[in-house]
Amino acid sequence: MPEITLVEAVNLALARAMADDATVLVLGEDVGVDGGVFRATNGLLKRFGKERVLDTPLAENVIAGMSVGLAAQGFRPVAEIQFSGFIYPTIDQLANHASRLRTRTRGRLTCPMVVRSPSGGGIRAVEHHSESPEAMFAHIPGLRVVVPSSPARAYGLLLAAIRDPDPVVFLEPTRLYRASREEVDDDGMALPLDRCFVLREGTDITLVTWGATTKEVLAAADTLAAEGVSAEVIDVATLKPLDTDGVLESVAKTGRCVIVHEAPVTCGVGAEIAARIAERGLVSLLAPIERVAGWDTVMPLYRLEQQYLPSEARILAAVRRVLAYQ
């Protein structure tokens, strides 16, 4: 089995989905000849031809909107939005149409489409290329929101997203695209879209995260282990629907929880997770929940982005406060 990067796993899943199902189309800006600016669609045009891999004009709104039309007609479009800062024009189509077409036609027309986009900071990119907009999508009923954090999960979750009968926003952490390699078996096996992943088992504290910050959280868990603290690390991955039970089971075991995400803290998905723990798991808590997240600021240009992103040091500081709470 070859060891591949996360972006190569995305490519592998796209190729697998296209080979398995002739209705799967890839469309977006520069996805064809160029193979995508991050090369996520590399080689697909050559393999599947220009009727299945479409270089679109530069217009995000119509990329999302034509995907609704294609999906209603029985195709499974996988649209790429080039950078997260360019994804906002798609919200109109996703909120007003893709997410509610099934409901408003009582299932007569449906919208099995995926909008993929790189997401998050940490690659010294230009302005508007480093945002983490997942909470905006997670607030829209009828959508699924998925953020993979490893090559194997990117492969399995993207296959699941493409095969899902409803619209999915699939946000790929740019910072992890080439950060590590992992063996990925191209077995066509999808992962569930409603379960969180326990990345590391532990007993003293639960660290909940997703996407790029799994890296810092796992590093923090290593540091803590060296100090004799056993941290459980949960990758939520499917932000909508959220696997509440998976989080609650862990918190019931550890009694302490820190939630880590890159998006701004206020109304971030962390707030929803904390609320659910408060609603259903309060009695198992031994300390207040802490959130380590992006600040409620504009994403800074790259010279200061490390001061914005949740660092291992910030995570450790929060964990120590939560552990020290009596």
Binding site: G65, M66, G69, A72, G74, F75, L109
Partner: peptide, 28 residues
């Protein structure tokens, strides 16, 4: 949930937002 014309789109209230859908349908 039209019994006839069952591939036709429903009424579109947000002005003009169905024009991109026509592109997708025509592309199909």
């Amino acid at each position: 949930d039209f019994a006839e014309a069952c591939e036709d789109f429903p009424v579109c209230v947000p002005v003009g937002t169905h024009a991109p859908h026509a592109v997708g349908v025509a592309l199909a």
